[in-house]
């Protein structure tokens, strides 16, 4: 190993618990997220290649090894990090070994996986590692981040075509028909093959043409969308279609304003009239009360006078009678002879 690469120390607790994979904590089999992720990776690998034996180079805490083992694959792993292997789940620890990817590998495997490992190694070590793992298998699942800034331990990031070319030097070619971008966007399966230039060109052209067609389609769609946006923008600026609507709304606003004016005037008119009537009333009411008092006084006065009148009338009547009496001629007196005769009759009766 050279000084340019990373060492076991660089992949201690801090690396696994904080930095690795966006620092999503608890990188272990017990974590549901990670367990589900590696189980589905194992599903994909078994589904695509049905390997009997798998070696995971740079296996970390052996989560992929464990996922494969659970599904009956004879899997094992190696990793440079002593911490990682030591903290691996008990069920899988025996299948893991602490080793550098640059060391010769024993045995023979249907599939070797090497996920996000070589970018952590120096360029020279990475070449050696490729030699080691291509020596023990005909099929490699390979993924190496092209992002130089994702982690401080990414000391050897390379574009995907560089890795593909280096594998091609060793007679391994990309399976263009297999898509494992669920693992990482740049995950690739390399397979040993005696491919003629014809076959290689055909495979790559097939992908290239498809991507190119898609690109052209999308460019065209982008242009169309841009044109549509511009035309809408122009229509918005000129607004010939909207002018009518604006005019209609303006007229409507004016109409409503007019209605507001009319009802406001109506209310104010009623309030004013009410005020005027109140004022009139305040003038008329005292006058009315004054008149009522006068009526009461006069009525009383009338009653008194009527009584007085009646009294006077009665007295008048009496006086009239008396006058009539007095004025009446005295009753004719009986003759002296008759008066004497009556006296005598009474006396001797």
């Amino acid at each position: 190993m050279t000084h340019e690469g990373t060492t076991s120390v660089d992949h201690g607790r801090g690396y696994y618990d904080q930095a690795h994979l966006d620092g999503r904590g608890d990188y272990s089999w017990d974590d549901e997220h990670w367990r589900d992720f590696f189980m589905s990776v194992a599903d994909r690998l078994i589904g695509a290649f049905a390997p009997a034996s798998v070696l995971d180079v740079g296996c970390g805490r052996g989560l992929l090894v464990q996922a494969l083992t659970v599904q009956g694959v004879d899997a094992s792993g190696l990793d440079i990090s002593e911490h990682a292997v030591a903290t691996a789940h008990a069920d899988v620890r025996d299948r893991l070994a602490v080793a550098s990817a640059t060391a010769p590998i024993e045995g023979r495997y249907d599939l070797v996986t090497c996920i996000e490992v070589l970018e952590h190694m120096s360029a020279t070590d990475a070449q050696l590692a490729i030699d080691r793992l291509t020596a023990v298998t005909d099929r490699v699942l390979f993924s190496s981040s092209p992002d130089p800034h994702g982690e401080p331990t990414h000391v050897n990031t390379q574009p995907g075509e560089a890795w593909a070319a280096w594998f091609a030097e060793r007679g391994f070619f990309r399976r263009t028909d297999v898509d494992l971008s669920m693992i990482t966007p740049w995950a690739v399966v390399f397979e040993r093959g005696e491919l003629t230039p014809h076959e290689i060109v055909r495979r790559y052209e097939q992908q290239y043409a498809r991507v190119r067609t898609e690109l052209l389609d999308k460019r065209r769609a982008l242009l169309d969308a841009d044109r549509a946006v511009n035309s809408l923008r122009e229509r918005l600026d000129e607004g010939p279609a909207d002018a009518e609507e604006v005019e209609r709304l303006r007229a409507e606003v004016a109409q409503h304003r007019h209605a507001v004016l009319v009802s406001r005037d109506h209310v104010i008119g009623l309030e004013a009239e009410n005020g005027r009537l109140q004022r009139d009333l305040s003038v008329v009411l005292p006058e009315l009360r004054k008149l009522q008092r006068r009526v009461t006084v006069l009525t009383k006065r009338r009653e008194e006078l009527t009584a007085k009148l009646q009294d006077t009338r009665q007295r008048l009547e009496r006086n009239r009678k008396r006058v009539a009496q007095l004025e009446a001629p005295p009753a004719p007196q009986a003759s002296l002879t008759r008066r004497v005769a009556r006296r005598v009759r009474r006396t001797f009766a």
Partner: peptide, 27 residues
Amino acid sequence: TYFEVGGFTETLPGNFNDVDLCYKVAA
């Protein structure tokens, strides 16, 4: 102010609508 006092009263089409308006402004 025009809207506050309800503008010119439409019950008076020809005369005295300004008199009414002045009364409303004073009120």
